[in-house]
Simulated assay, not measured.
Amino acid sequence: MATRKLPAPSKHAGAPPAPIELSPGDVVGERWRIVRQIGEGGSAVIYEAVHRNGRVGALKVLRPILSNDARARERFLAEARIANEVGHPSIVSVFDDDVLEDGRPYLVLELLEGESLHDRLARLPDQKMDALEACELGVRLCDLLDAVHGRGVIHRDLKPDNLFLTNEGQLKLLDFGIARAETVSRVFPTMTGVVLGTLGYMAREQARGDLDSIDRRTDVWGVGALLYRVITGKRVHQSESSNAELFAAMETPPAKVRVLAPEVPERIARVIDKALEQTMACRWGSALEMRDALELAIRHERLMRTAPPSWPGLEEEIAPPTNAAEPRRLRVELKALAFVSGIALGMIAAASWFGLT
Rank of each mutant, 00 (worst) to 15 (best):
V187P: 00
V187Y: 06
V187H: 12
F188N: 08
F188P: 04
F188I: 14
F188Y: 13
P189S: 06
P189D: 04
P189Q: 08
P189A: 03
P189M: 08
P189T: 09
P189H: 08
P189E: 02
T190N: 05
T190M: 12
T190G: 00
T190I: 15
T190H: 09
T190D: 08
T190V: 15
M191L: 12
M191R: 15
M191H: 10
M191I: 14
M191Y: 09
T192I: 13
T192F: 07
T192Y: 07
T192A: 09
T192C: 00
T192L: 13
G193E: 12
G193F: 14
V194Y: 11
V194M: 12
V194Q: 13
V194G: 00
V194P: 04
V195W: 05
V195R: 13
V195F: 11
V195T: 12
V195Y: 07
L196G: 02
L196C: 05
L196F: 09
L196H: 09
G197V: 02
G197C: 06
G197A: 07
G197D: 01
G197K: 08
G197S: 07
G197L: 06
T198G: 02
T198H: 08
T198R: 10
T198D: 01
T198N: 06
T198L: 07
L199W: 00
L199H: 02
L199A: 07
L199I: 05
G200T: 11
G200W: 12
G200L: 11
Y201K: 01
Y201F: 15
Y201R: 03
Y201N: 02
Y201P: 05
M202Y: 04
M202H: 01
M202Q: 02
M202K: 03
A203L: 06
A203D: 08
A203K: 00
R204K: 11
R204D: 00
R204T: 13
R204H: 06
R204F: 01
R204W: 03
R204N: 01
E205W: 02
E205M: 03
Q206L: 09
Q206R: 02
A207T: 10
A207D: 14
A207P: 14
R208A: 09
R208M: 14
R208T: 14
R208C: 12
R208L: 15
R208E: 15
G209Y: 14
G209R: 14
G209D: 13
G209Q: 14
G209V: 15
D210F: 04
D210G: 01
D210T: 14
L211C: 06
L211W: 12
D212M: 13
D212S: 12
D212I: 13
D212G: 12
S213V: 13
S213L: 15
S213Y: 11
S213P: 10
I214E: 10
I214G: 01
I214P: 05
I214L: 15
I214Q: 09
D215Y: 10
D215F: 11
D215S: 09
D215T: 10
D215A: 06
D215V: 10
R216F: 01
R217F: 05
R217M: 08
R217N: 06
R217D: 03
R217V: 09
T218Q: 04
T218D: 05
T218K: 00
D219P: 02
D219R: 08
D219N: 05
D219F: 07
D219S: 04
D219T: 08
D219A: 01
V220L: 03
V220N: 01
V220P: 09
V220W: 06
V220D: 01
V220H: 04
V220M: 05
V220F: 01
W221I: 04
W221Q: 02
W221K: 03
